[in-house]
């Protein structure tokens, strides 16, 4: 039994992950992050249902600098997960597995996430003021 010739799984601290691997683990991480974001969604709705004081507290938290940064990160995670999720749906349907295609759709998902996040916040700051 020759054991030193076996293929090794990538050594994560040395191996430079290809874009397809980065987009894959980021999909998972952004999904977990969005699980936390869903707490914020429910908190805002419950505060709005609870009365003016609770709503004012929620708005103050969301409007603070930290609150805005957290919400920008949540929106970026959401748009990334959404764009990359569409990529996954195409894979599930059997399309887009060629290396070149997978690489380009990965770049497209990242670009779409950034652009959609910027658009959402331009709308938010110009129309909604939040």
């Amino acid at each position: 039994m020759q054991s030193d010739n076996r293929p090794l799984s990538p050594h994560l601290q040395i191996y430079r992950l290809p874009l397809t691997a980065i987009t894959s683990i980021t999909h998972r991480l952004s999904g977990l992050l969005l699980g936390l974001g869903a707490f914020g969604m429910v908190y805002w709705l419950v505060a709005l249902a609870s009365g003016p004081e609770a709503y004012a507290a929620a708005q103050a938290a969301a409007g603070s600098v930290i609150g805005q940064i957290v919400m920008i990160l949540f929106s970026l995670a959401l748009f990334y997960h959404l764009a990359n999720g569409i990529r996954h749906l195409f894979w599930d349907a059997g399309y887009g597995f060629e290396l070149e295609t997978a690489h380009r759709t990965g770049q497209a998902a990242i670009a779409a996430a950034v652009v959609l996040t910027i658009i959402a916040w331009v709308i938010g700051y110009s129309v909604g003021g939040a």
Binding site: A120, G124, G128
Partner: peptide, 16 residues
């Protein structure tokens, strides 16, 4: 979620 994000962007800063 596209609807939700646009909704929050437009109405998120609304008063009570």
């Amino acid at each position: 979620l596209l609807w939700f994000v646009i909704g929050i962007a437009v109405h998120g800063g609304a008063d009570y």
